[in-house]
C-alpha cells in the first residue's frame, strides 16, 4: 500500500471540527486550575482522530466542550465553521459508562434521541436498523440489567448512531470492557465508522487502540494539556496490531508519555 493511505471514505457526512486557541480552567476551592491551554486542533470530515494522554490531563474536558456540555471559556470552537454554543444531535457522545436508562428497554434506550426530537413516531424503523447494525436486534425488549458490559456499550453505540451523527465523540468507550470484548469492539467501531462516514474524536488510554482506530493520534502532555506530538498512522483498515509501523509508533507514543524506558 502507498504510505500516504488515509481513511478510505472521506465523505460529506462527516463534520469539520476546528479548535483554535482553546483554554479552559476549573475553580477548585477558590483556586484556578487550568486544564487546557492554547489548544489548536482540526478534524477533517470523515477523519478519526485519537487523543492520547495521561489520565486527568483534560481530554475529557475537551470532549465535553466539543459536545457543548461545558460552556466555552476561551478560544474558538467551530463545527463546519459555525461556533458551538450547546449540545446538538449532530455531535453525539459515547461515554465510558454506557449510561443506559435502567427503566427503559434496549429498544426504548436506542429510541431516546429520536423521541427527544419528536421524530420517533415517523422513524421507528431507524431504531430497529440501529439495533441490527450493532447485532442486538434480538435484545430489543431486554432491560439494561440483563446485558453484559460489551452488549450495553453496543446499545450505547446504537443509541448514538440512530441520530446519524456527523461527529462521534468517543470518551474511552471501551475502557471498562475485558480485553477480549475490547478487541471485538475495536473491530466493530472501525466497521461502523467506515459504513457511516462520520468524523470521530476518540479519547483513550490505550496506545494500541488509538493506533488501530485513528488516522491521526495526538499525544497530550500532563495537565494543563498541550499537544506533544502528532502521529500519522499510514495504514489501511483493518490494521494488524503486530504491524512494524504500528509497533514503531507505539514505541514513540509511549516514550512521549514517559514510559519509553520501561518498555
Amino acid at each position: 500500500m502507498v504510505a500516504t493511505a488515509r481513511s478510505p471514505i472521506p465523505t460529506e457526512r462527516g463534520l469539520r471540527l476546528d479548535i483554535r486557541g482553546l483554554a479552559h480552567a476549573f475553580e477548585l476551592k477558590g483556586e484556578r486550575l487550568p486544564v487546557l491551554q492554547r489548544l489548536d486542533l482540526s478534524v477533517a470530515p470523515g477523519e478519526m482522530v485519537a487523543l492520547l494522554g495521561p489520565s486527568g490531563c483534560g481530554k475529557s474536558t475537551l470532549l465535553r466542550l466539543v459536545a457543548g456540555l461545558e460552556p466555552l471559556q476561551h478560544g474558538e470552537l467551530l463545527a463546519d465553521g459555525a461556533p458551538i454554543a450547546g449540545p446538538d444531535p449532530s455531535r453525539v457522545v459515547v461515554f465510558q459508562d454506557p449510561t443506559l436508562y435502567p427503566w427503559r428497554t434496549v429498544w426504548d434506550n436506542v429510541a431516546l434521541g429520536l423521541q427527544a426530537r419528536g421524530l420517533l413516531r415517523q422513524q421507528r424503523g431507524r431504531v430497529d436498523e440501529a439495533l441490527a447494525k450493532v447485532g442486538l436486534g434480538e435484545f430489543a425488549q431486554a432491560y439494561p440489567r440483563q446485558l453484559s458490559g460489551g452488549m450495553a456499550q453496543r446499545v450505547a453505540l446504537a443509541r448514538a448512531l440512530v441520530n446519524d451523527p456527523r461527529l462521534l465523540i468517543l470518551d474511552e468507550p471501551l475502557g471498562k470492557l475485558d480485553s477480549l470484548t475490547r478487541i471485538a469492539m475495536q473491530g466493530e467501531l472501525i466497521r461502523l465508522w467506515q459504513q457511516q462516514g462520520y468524523s470521530g474524536l476518540l479519547v483513550t488510554h490505550d496506545v494500541e487502540e488509538a493506533l488501530l482506530l485513528a488516522d491521526r493520534v495526538l499525544v497530550f502532555s500532563d495537565r494543563p494539556a498541550r499537544v506533544l506530538a502528532e502521529l500519522q498512522v499510514a495504514r489501511d483498515y483493518p490494521r494488524h496490531r503486530d504491524d512494524p509501523h504500528l509497533v514503531e509508533l507505539r514505541r514513540q507514543a509511549l516514550e512521549l508519555l514517559g514510559l519509553g524506558k520501561d518498555w
Binding site: G68, T99, G113
Partner: peptide, 12 residues
C-alpha cells in the same frame, strides 16, 4: 451522565 446523554441527543 443521564442528563448529559439526553442533552447531547437534543433533549429539551
Amino acid at each position: 451522565g443521564y442528563y448529559d446523554v439526553a442533552r447531547t441527543l437534543g433533549a429539551s
